[in-house]
Simulated assay, not measured.
Amino acid sequence: MTKQRTCLERGRKTSVRLDQINLESEAGTARPGPLIKEHVKDLVRTKKNVGELDPVLLWKNPDNPEAKYIILDGRHRVAAYRTSKQTQKIPAEVLERPFREALLISGQRHTNSSLALTSQERADFAWRLVWEDFDYSKKEISQASGVSTRQVAYMRKRLKEIENTDYDITGSWWRDKQEQTVTEDKPMLADAQRRQQVDEMAKVIRDLFDRRGNPLPFWNNELVAEATAQALGEQKLRMIYEYSFGGLDDEEDEWGDLPVRSYPDEDPHAGPEEDTEIDF
């Protein structure tokens, strides 16, 4: 009987120089984007204390032996070595197999790692496996990303809808699953602009919920939750939940029987001159 490979299969143990690694490419990682600086600092401290970090997982193109290694798992560890001005070789596992298989293993490693993917990162990775032309099965995508096969099926359905339009896939499941309406007065933000606005809005929200010097009982989580629900309304709450936790199984009826308390547009207990609406 032929032994079937699994996503947890190990690579060849070796050591490599940093200049042998393609430090710019994010093609092999399930967590692209900016590195988490605090995690890099923690790894630098760990390296200083123990001398070596866990091996990074690299992909070697079997059809192009001269090409540099691609990082599958361990971008933060590589950054920690670079920060430490590492001049010697670093420990690594090297996979030499079709990229199609290597990408699944990258997802599995991130799902099981100490710095596991967030729900949104898992959804984005699963979405990538759907829209990139690797012909993965639903089970393969589910195992590699940690999302349900039901959600994978919904992603495939969404991809077919997009294929009949001129919409350009962004790679963000949260954005690509929505019906995007871009107009002249509401253009789609560039990533840098979007990041800046998110950071500014987050600061406003943090300041609003800051307990220090605030006469309102923001230490009471139940009151905070109820006040937030009343201020934002059901639609925004659903969007926040969906973004933060992957949106259950992303079906049209994804909220199903989940109880969501509804609130009137106006506070029935407020006096006639009191304005209870908070505009975010």
Rank of each mutant, 00 (worst) to 15 (best):
L23G: 14
E9R: 11
S142M: 09
T118A: 11
V78F: 01
K48W: 01
G233Q: 09
L232I: 12
R5N: 14
A30M: 07
Y154N: 11
L189P: 00
L58E: 01
M188I: 05
E161W: 02
P65G: 01
K203G: 05
G247C: 06
Q180G: 01
D124K: 01
K60V: 03
G51R: 02
R10F: 12
E252Y: 13
A80K: 02
T83V: 11
V224D: 03
W255A: 03
E226I: 09
R175L: 14
N112E: 15
H269E: 12
L248D: 04
E226P: 00
E184I: 02
V182G: 02
L223D: 10
S244V: 10
I36N: 15
A80T: 02
R261S: 13
W255D: 08
P187T: 09
L23M: 06
A229I: 03
T46Y: 09
T6Q: 14
Y243G: 05
R238W: 07
K48A: 15
E234Y: 06
L232P: 05
V260Q: 08
E96D: 03
I90L: 09
K68G: 13
R10L: 15
I105G: 00
G233F: 04
Q230K: 15
V204D: 10
H269F: 13
V198F: 08
I162V: 14
V147P: 05
M188N: 07
W131P: 00
D19Q: 12
W131N: 07
F134P: 03
W255I: 09
F280A: 03
A30H: 04
P55E: 07
V16Q: 06
S142K: 01
G233M: 05
L189K: 10
P272R: 15
P264Q: 01
Q20D: 12
R45P: 00
R122L: 00
A153K: 15
K47V: 02
E38D: 15
S84N: 13
R109L: 08
N64K: 14
P217A: 05
W59S: 07
A225L: 11
K177G: 08
I162W: 05
A30V: 05
L258A: 10
V40T: 09
R128L: 05
V198K: 13
N112Q: 14
W219T: 11
W174S: 13
V204M: 11
A116I: 11
V56L: 07
E184H: 10
W219A: 06
Y81W: 08
Q88E: 14
D63M: 12
R261L: 10
C7E: 13
W131T: 05
H76I: 02
G247R: 05
K203M: 11
N112P: 00
P259Y: 12
S244W: 01
D249T: 04
S84A: 15
E140F: 11
K186I: 11
S106D: 03
L35S: 08
R17N: 12
R195P: 00
